[in-house]
């Protein structure tokens, strides 16, 4: 068994052509997952009746089951559940189910990053804003969020990296993204060049994750001045 760099370069364009699909999945899941997690965090912090315990249940389930299983449950279960209320999603593509899974998954995980970050802003500052006549919205946007962000960023960065890795299971439900392409290549070759193919895929994931990491680090530097409250310097 020897590595064939020529072959690796030859198969690269095939991967590049499906890269946009993977990036769209990451972007949509990350964005909508984050928005969902903000909603979930809000419900839990405000202790909204009925909804708050439901969110606890949802988070507990999501954190305690493998993501592969969650994807299969969404893929086979969601059409059944939605058909009960008259919504037909049988014509959805695998990609949409994949995004739905990742959004639900991240909605739970990210809220476990946001909630402690929110609680890290001491109650006194929120009271001070109240006492000065801020509306709840002004208090959140001007005082709380700017301080939540630097605390939550490292956690959110890790979650983004995990999200990127999690897209590698989408081929199970027939999405032809990077991993899907790899599987097709391997079955075409009857498995004779597995190592070359998987190594190429690994390098691509590495490159995406590396860039995502740089992106997050850039934001961390941007918000570093807020760390002054902890006595750290710029």
């Amino acid at each position: 068994m020897k590595m064939d760099f020529g072959y690796m370069i030859k198969i690269l364009p095939g991967f590049i052509s499906v890269l946009p699909l993977t990036l769209v999945v990451i972007l949509c899941s990350g964005l909508f997952g984050f928005l969902l997690s903000v909603l979930v965090t809000g419900i839990r912090i405000k202790r909204v009746k009925i909804f708050s315990p439901l969110m606890e249940l949802y988070i507990s389930f999501t954190r305690s089951t493998p993501i592969l299983l969650q994807m299969l449950l969404v893929y086979y279960g969601l059409p059944v559940v939605l058909s009960l209320i008259g919504i037909n999603i049988n014509n959805w593509s695998g990609t949409l189910f994949a995004i739905a899974t990742l959004v639900l998954h991240n909605g739970a995980f990210l809220s476990e990053i946001l909630r402690p970050a929110y609680l890290a802003v001491d109650e006194g500052q929120k009271e001070a804003a109240d006492s000065l006549g801020f509306t709840s919205f002004q208090k959140l946007t001007r005082i709380v969020f700017p301080q939540v962000l630097p605390v939550a960023l490292p956690g959110l960065g890790n979650a983004l990296i995990y999200l990127i890795q999690d897209t590698s299971i989408l081929f199970i439900i027939g999405v032809v993204d990077i991993m899907g392409t790899a599987n097709n290549l391997i079955s075409n070759d009857f498995g004779s060049r597995q190592i070359d193919v998987f190594l190429t895929v690994a390098l691509i994931y590495w490159a995406i994750s590396y860039m995502a990491d740089k992106f997050i680090k850039y934001f961390e530097r941007k918000t570093a001045r807020y760390h002054l409250e902890n006595g750290l310097t710029r």
Partner: peptide, 29 residues
């Protein structure tokens, strides 16, 4: 609240803002 102002035992300054930003914030917002 806009007719009263409170000074707290624990000061409760906005920690991500400088002294003058702390004083300016509510005037602006």
């Amino acid at each position: 609240r806009r007719r009263t102002a409170m000074v707290f035992q624990q000061y409760n300054l906005f920690k991500n803002k400088t002294a003058i930003e702390n004083v300016m914030e509510a005037q602006i917002v």
